[in-house]
Amino acid sequence: MTTLLQRVKSKMAIFAHRKARGMLDGEYGSVFRGRSLDFDDLRAYVPGDEVRDIDWKATARHGSPLIKRYVAVRRQTVLLITDTGRNMAAVAQGGETKRDIAVMALGVLGYLAHRHGDVVGLVSGDSSGTRTLPAKGGEAHLEWLLRHVHSHASEDAAGSSIEEQLEHVARTVKGRHLLFVVADEIAANPELDRLLRRLRVQHEILWLTIRDADLASAAEWYGVDDSSSLLSHLAQSPAVAAAYTQAAAERDAGRKNMLRQAGITEGSVAGTHDVITALFALLERHRRAG
């Protein structure tokens, strides 16, 4: 039986054929700026590496740029934060369930952390409550975290509310961690804005939004959040489509502005097929913003 983590590793292996894996590892390693590091070895320079890490003497001897690789003296803690409410059972823009996309994204980031010797924990839940799974190392632990998300995000779950999980982190988590948030297309509001600014003072935060399905992509729409249905003739109405598009654009603009003002880097993803490239771009933008 193929495990969830095996699917993640297979996706990363395919990506490695198109781009050097060191690029993705390097972008992840840049998130914790200023952490204590020990020299490990040298590797070939790839686009995206910091120029300051080039070993110029070794480069001169070798004839092409070489980068110094380091290992962390102490492990960092990565908290995967996601909504497992019934919104995540809905279909995303790429045609897959948001749950499957979330599991892939959490798995990729978690596996990068594992490869760097960091420990990974999970904060997940819905509007009815939040559960924390402690941060540990190892592939078996990461598989457990992914299975928890996969099994709890369903149409039978309570309503979605990522604010509940973020509030739980703000109230209970001590120390400085990397928070990787995977969420639905949420709308900005003053309370969430204050919460994010509070969290950003303490933590590094990466935010990945899973895109909603297009209004015209299905013959009949079913509202997972409130169990309502939208008949096909309404979904295909030009007036309804225009109003929906405008509302979605306003919601996206508000969320992007809220996250930007809080100093949080956001990326978006439509399906499992573009999770790797979306995460690479997210990590790269976070490094440049810092």
Rank of each mutant, 00 (worst) to 15 (best):
K57P: 07
R21N: 12
Q236F: 08
W56D: 03
A158G: 13
H168T: 14
G85S: 08
S227M: 11
V71N: 09
L122D: 03
V46M: 00
A188D: 15
E284N: 12
D25N: 13
V31S: 02
W56N: 02
E220W: 00
A92E: 03
R285V: 08
R285C: 13
Q236K: 08
A253Q: 14
R288H: 14
L231S: 15
Q261N: 14
L279N: 06
R52N: 14
V8P: 04
P47Q: 04
A241P: 01
G175P: 11
I162A: 11
K174E: 15
Y45Q: 06
A102Y: 00
T77E: 13
V269A: 11
G34Q: 10
R200F: 04
G85M: 04
G175H: 04
V31D: 02
T265F: 02
P47T: 09
Q261A: 11
Q93Y: 05
S128M: 10
Y111W: 09
A187Y: 07
D193A: 15
G121P: 11
A270I: 05
T59V: 06
A289E: 15
S268I: 12
D126S: 10
A44G: 12
E220L: 10
G85P: 02
K256F: 09
A270T: 13
L178Q: 02
F39G: 12
G26Q: 01
A241W: 00
I67L: 08
V31Y: 01
G94F: 04
T272G: 08
W221S: 07
V73L: 12
R43Q: 05
A153M: 07
L279A: 07
I54L: 09
H177V: 12
N257C: 12
G48H: 06
A249G: 11
G26M: 01
L142W: 01
L133K: 10
L79W: 03
G22C: 04
A16N: 13
R115H: 08
H273S: 14
A153P: 02
V119W: 00
L146K: 01
G110D: 07
S217W: 00
A262F: 02
I14E: 13
I186P: 02
F280C: 14
E191G: 11
V120A: 11
R131H: 13
E191S: 14
G48N: 09
L37M: 10
D41S: 12
G271S: 15
P134M: 10
V123G: 00
R147V: 04
R131L: 12
E139G: 11
M258L: 15
D53E: 09
L24D: 02
P238G: 10
V224N: 04
R75L: 14
L234N: 07
I186G: 00
S124K: 02
A216I: 06
E96G: 01
T272M: 06
Y70Q: 02
